[in-house]
Amino acid sequence: MKNLILSTAALALTAGVAMADTVRLGTEGAYPPYNFINDAGEVDGFERELGDELCKRASLTCEWVTNDWDSIITNLQSSNYDAIIAGMSITEEREATMDFTQGYTRPSPSAYAAMSADIDVNKAVVAAQTGTIQSSHVATTGATLVEFTTPDETIAAVNGGEVDAVMADKDFLAPFVAETDLTFVSEVFLGGGIGMAFRESDDELRGKFDAAIASMKADGTLNDLLDKWEIEGKF
């Protein structure tokens, strides 16, 4: 299930390194500001710029591949790409099957957004995308969980009055709150920041990216990127 096509923007780097390994980076392409498909039909967003910079620092040639969220982990494990860089929060369950780099965002808040601020998120009808940490969280509260297959449908549902609120990463909701009638109701911290995921057997590659992330944290370039894409939290 490689989701192929798109964005073959292989970064031909550091001339002279002829045998540079090609590292395939898997992303979803439907989760702005982290990753999305821009007007030109290419992978774009915070993670696109971050990934390209990391590859440059680690002297690797990288290729971007998009894959459906549902099967994004299975396809990593069956080696159809080498890393997931798709706004994936570091959680215990995921740690059990994959290895993450250090987080490249601060533990990011998930937020409830609704048409009116005076709803009780523990009693309301709340929409979330199927198979996300947010849908798992809502299932544990007293709220009525309504699951949609794509994040866009959750937004459409709250706009259409089908549900009282939507729960997703705050950064994903922020532009909708800024430009439409939605308002934030409350926040919850779920997961431990966002990191790149690798197969457990791929420690060497993970080490390279981990070091590159650390160097970006050290020289402040990561903060600049976070600023540019208006993602909360700094290092």
Binding site: D70, T74, T97, G131, A139, L145, V146
Partner: peptide, 26 residues
């Protein structure tokens, strides 16, 4: 692909999908 699932009440494929998602094993 059509209708949303309420309170995690779904059909057979919904639950199969749930397990595949949680166990990472299709």
């Amino acid at each position: 692909s059509g209708f949303p699932a309420w309170r995690q009440k779904g059909d057979a494929l919904y639950y199969a999908n749930y397990f595949a998602d949680k166990t990472f094993n299709p």
